[in-house]
Amino acid sequence: MVDLTEATLVRRARAGELEAMRELYERHASRVYTVVRRLAGDNDLAADLAQDAWASAFQKIREFRGEAAFGTWVHRIAVNTALTQLRQAARRRNLEQGFDGSSTQGNPDRWPASGAAERVTIQRALDLLPDGYRSVLWLHDVEGYTHEEIGARLGIAVGTSKSQLAKARARLRALVTESRAEVVDHGAS
């Protein structure tokens, strides 16, 4: 395809041109997938979320007026899609405490087996956090959302968002420290 401007691609995508949609996807696929993957903490779930986010974006592309860049617009859709579905999943699992801050327990099936000599990278440690912690931490420390914005999106109080963030940082720090200590132990033995 000829190197088209994003505005042209959006106009063509609005008209239903598949090639234009594909080009827009190619330009922003990594950014969208990365944010949903960080929020989801799981590859399969992230793929589902990315699929839903892109399908939603193209289905309502007529609503895109160009006030922001297309990448910003689709990124916002991806964040909203991920947060909505993570909250629904938490509700289904009766794990709302993962979002309201009353629990410090993570998703048990994501924790490594006891004594496993698994090198936990930052990314892995992030995956190990409870959904609520991970969402608040990522949105605040990486995406730059304020506590007010996070509270509005997650349906929690500003104070809860701050508390979640503090606990998430402490938990992440502990996970990384543990992991690095394990690596040192195994390296020495």
Partner: peptide, 17 residues
């Protein structure tokens, strides 16, 4: 992160075209 290679085909199946 790179999106999974099969992701586009999954998205395409749901596109309004």
């Amino acid at each position: 992160l790179d999106a999974p290679p099969e992701l586009w085909s999954r998205i395409e199946a749901r596109l309004p075209v």
